[in-house]
Design a binder for these strands. Structure first.
Lengths: 119, 119
DNA sequence: TCGTTATATGAATGATTGTTCATATGTTCT
DNA sequence: AGAACATATGAACAATCATTCATATAACGA
């Protein structure tokens, strides 16, 4: 029932809860890491790329053909996905074959689908 | 080895793979739905809100106090989270107590954490 | 009813983002 | 070496977004 204006400009009503939440807060690195991963997943093109790669390994131009998008657009997105370690590339001559880097990604997509379907 | 310029402007090399990917593609609704959910999760403030609510039910001003943010900023984000059915509000007098709407959300956060920690 | 407080929301703004265009890099084939 | 092709990337631009400020709504107490 007490306010604690020393902490921030906002009145706080249930101090125990606030303290409890603060005690269990994630670290700054965890928060930005999580946000980056989800932000990366939060784009139709990248979802389609990941879903396509969950089907089979694909080179850039096949991805472009499958998604009906330019090579450049695909390549830019692949760079992002590579940086976030969501996909990995395997070079073979001129071609670069991309595949999912991690099982977590399929799990995340499945979990997301479960959420939107269940509602 | 064949190109199929009728499909799109991009050359496609492994036609069978492209066809296979197209056959298993998600629907437009599923893709935008997934992207919206992940986009919503892809923001530090919203992650912190959801993580706080995974601890206990909280009113808006307590959330503001716990996160050190203004009531307005929190409230705007809560509206988004409410729209996407990630949180729900329970009104009690002047106060509105928010909580997670769904178990999937905790699972998604946990799966995301597993991904960033494992690497 | 009036003052206070909790929450919601519209408008504005600076920041971030996705795609396109142009071009660079690197590999294969002749 | 030179042509053709697959991929990568920098710059630019429109679109989207997160926060702030101001204000509205609504509930409570005096």
């Amino acid at each position: 029932m007490s306010n604690d204006p020393s902490v921030c400009a906002v009145r706080c009503i249930h101090t125990e809860n606030v303290i409890r939440v603060k005690r269990h807060a994630l670290s700054a690195e965890e928060i930005t890491g999580l946000a980056e991963i989800f932000k990366t997943l939060g784009n139709p093109t990248r979802i389609r790329i990941l879903q396509a790669l969950s089907e089979c390994e694909l080179c850039v131009c096949d991805l472009g053909a499958a998604l009906g998008m330019t090579q450049s657009a695909i390549s830019h997105q692949l760079r992002l996905l590579r940086t976030l370690r969501l996909v990995k590339g395997r070079k073979e001559g001129k071609l670069v074959f991309y595949s999912l880097d991690d099982d977590h990604i399929t799990n995340l997509l499945a979990q997301g689908l479960a959420h939107i379907r269940h509602i």
